[in-house]
Design a protein around this nucleic acid. Structure first.
Lengths: 117, 117
DNA sequence: CAGCATCCCCTAGGATACTG
DNA sequence: CAGTATCCTAGGGGATGCTG
């Protein structure tokens, strides 16, 4: 079985966006407004955020609720389908917690790529 | 807790490359040579494959073994540290298996990459 | 065969300004 | 405040050729 027919491919089509894991992770805690998400993910520009949210919405893992009022208010939340992704997000979260980037210590040589964008 | 201090960030720094989840997934089954990986992941160019392998090696999740012979032979395998990533890969695999892509009509051929580099 | 170096194109994505 | 439309540049990544 190669990459093209590997189930992982389907998964990455949904959560494989630059900011999608974060969005899903934060929405898992509670519904959030655009601005709140922006503040939680400061590295992502508004443009990127909107784009990723649109794709997640198309894939039916998040829901977009518009409050018809002034000023405008939009709230995003996970759909039941989106919640099925939680095991993946939780696993990623757990691993990151147990394997913080090497600083001073015993963990194998890890050359801390601080290449962050 | 925002994105910058979220444990998921650490995880994505390691597995958040375009082809890394596939590489790790395939190496989990058995050690593989460069050529074999290339055949398993036909969408990735040799250049990309090498680059991703280098990063995974630097992060100490895979091992690179060179057989000093002609023709050259290089074999990649997971390190013990790399094996701790399996729960994540397995979760992704399981989800993809249980949630096959939308069927009829549109063919979504989108290969996104994961993670903020 | 493994994989580095080069050239080079294309688009992801940042900054900015505007609408509802 | 939420989102769209433009512009524009950095670098992701493909193709090719050379080395051990």
């Amino acid at each position: 079985m190669n990459q093209q027919e590997c189930p992982i491919t389907f998964t990455l089509e949904v959560i494989g966006g630059k900011w999608k894991p974060y969005i899903l992770h934060f929405l898992a805690a509670r519904p959030l407004r655009s601005g709140e998400l922006g503040r939680l993910i400061p590295q992502a520009s508004g443009k990127m955020l909107t784009q990723q949210l649109r794709e997640l919405e198309r894939d039916a893992v998040i829901r977009r609720k518009v409050y018809q009022q002034v000023p405008p208010k939009v709230e995003y939340s996970l759909t039941p389908h989106g919640e099925t992704l939680m095991p993946i997000l939780d696993a990623m979260c757990a691993w990151g917690r147990q394997n913080p980037p090497a600083k001073a210590g015993k963990v194998r040589q890890r050359q801390a790529r601080m290449g962050g964008d």
